[in-house]
């Protein structure tokens, strides 16, 4: 088939239509990320960029303990947030898919997504109001006479960061799991019961494995963006709750050291991608092992 007839064919017209979004993503995503890679091998020389190739930024990253500590803490926080969010979300998605009558499902989904669409900054700040020194929990507990002094361990530390992020990413976890559960043919569940499994064993042998794609999507969709968040740690984390994204932000916007920031961003991105790929691969193997 010649190029001319391809352009006229349906596939050709599809390719023409796909060109604008593709070129846009190429220009504003692929090329900029390439630029980040490039910058990470350069150095900031006071006001100008030294464009000689060097591994200095990466050397600094691995030499100074602060970066490793921040990255490790970030990965841990993201991991815990993911675990907590997905575990809390699964029963809700399950309830929605299996126990809510179908004409009510839209309403429930709507109720779950609404908080997510309201200003993220303000939501984070409101958690500060709830968990803070004079916050809702402390004043409530004092008012009830349970404690005399406000509790101080609930704000300005990693716990507060985790609670806030778990709240912020809840709908991201519920939706993919719900979609996967909805796709399960209900007669499979009945078949399992008919073949002698209990409700519980049916869940573990049929429902859970079949909902795995949704679970994996939920994990990735929570884990990856949480690494890139600097708002929550800044507002909720206190001195000991800063994460790697705060460091990237500081390098770029306060220290004006774009190459160093680029190197940190690169290391963080490589780590996240690697973890995500390993997770997906392990999951595939687990599913195949069962099949």
């Amino acid at each position: 088939m010649g190029l001319g007839s391809f352009a006229k064919s349906e596939g050709g017209r599809a390719a023409t239509l796909l060109a604008p979004p593709f070129l846009y993503a190429l220009a504003l995503l692929a090329l900029p990320i390439l630029a980040v890679v490039l910058f990470s091998f350069w150095t900031q020389d006071f006001m100008t960029i030294d464009t000689r190739f060097t591994l200095a930024n990466y050397r600094e990253f691995f030499d100074k303990p602060i970066y490793g500590v921040l990255l490790g803490r970030s990965l841990m926080v993201s991991g815990i947030v993911t675990l907590v969010t997905v575990l809390l979300a699964y029963p809700v998605a399950y309830f929605l898919s299996f126990h809510v009558p179908s004409h009510r499902k839209s309403l429930w989904l709507f109720l779950i997504t609404i908080p997510f669409w309201t200003s993220y900054l303000i939501r984070v700040f409101l958690w500060k109001v709830i968990l803070g020194y004079n916050g809702v929990i402390n004043s409530g507990l004092i008012g009830a006479g349970i404690i005399d002094e406000p509790l101080s361990f609930i704000l300005y530390n990693i716990n507060a960061v985790i609670i806030t992020l778990a709240h912020a990413f809840a709908p991201f976890a519920i939706l993919p799991i719900f979609v996967a559960l909805e796709k399960i043919d209900r007669s499979l569940i009945e078949a399992s019961r008919d073949l002698g499994e209990t409700r519980l064993t049916t869940f573990f042998r049929v429902t859970l494995p079949l909902s795995m794609p949704g679970l994996v999507a939920a994990v990735l969709i929570v884990f990856i963006p949480t690494i890139g968040d600097y708002v929550t740690p800044e507002l909720m984390g206190g001195a000991g709750g800063k994460l790697i994204a705060n460091m990237i932000q500081t390098q770029f916007l306060q220290l004006n050291n774009a190459p160093m920031g680029a190197a940190i961003a690169m290391v963080a991105m490589v780590c996240v991608t690697a973890i995500a790929l390993v997770f997906v691969a392990l999951n595939r193997r687990w599913l195949r092992g069962r099949g």
């Binding site: 391809f6 995503l29 980040v36 963006p225 774009a258 963080a268 996240v272």
Partner: peptide, 30 residues
């Protein structure tokens, strides 16, 4: 209709959905 590479291109355009926002921010800033 499908054409060679279509799935990959659509996947690439959808990529920002699973990219940490700070990466998008930093790369565009540079």
């Amino acid at each position: 209709a499908r054409f060679p590479g279509k799935g990959g291109i659509i996947g690439f355009v959808m990529l920002p959905l699973v990219l940490p926002e700070i990466i998008v921010a930093v790369s565009l800033l540079i």
